[in-house]
């Protein structure tokens, strides 16, 4: 079953994951993801027809609260964590040419 992980799939997954892999890492990822998926295929032994997917163990619905600002202004402290700051804002690489 591991053959469903082709080199193209690894390329695609690394794009989705926003990761840049070396050739060695790609080879290793291919093997490891393949092994894990083979193992995940064990779930196909179970008949889950008609079973609702359970994302949360308790039946909770959307939890709403009033949109009220409770915290103080922390702009300066928050910006101290940023790798790049300019004029009180996050500095990012150019996104449009």
């Amino acid at each position: 079953m591991a053959n469903k992980i082709s080199d193209e799939t690894i390329e695609y997954v690394s794009i989705l994951s926003k990761l840049k892999l070396t050739d060695k890492e790609k080879k290793q990822a291919k093997k490891e993801i393949g092994n894990m998926l083979d193992y995940f295929d064990k779930l196909n032994e179970l008949d889950t027809t008609g079973v609702e997917p359970m994302s949360h163990v308790f039946p909770i619905n959307n939890v709403f609260r009033e949109d009220v600002i409770k915290n103080e202004d922390q702009r300066e402290d928050i910006l101290k964590n940023a790798p790049g700051v300019k004029d009180g804002m996050f500095k990012v690489p150019r996104t449009v040419e």
Binding site: Y12, S17, I33, M36, F40
Partner: peptide, 13 residues
């Protein structure tokens, strides 16, 4: 961490 991110991206793709 990278390995699990990739695995997760795959199973959600």
């Amino acid at each position: 961490v990278k390995s699990r991110i990739m695995l997760g991206s795959f199973v959600l793709s």
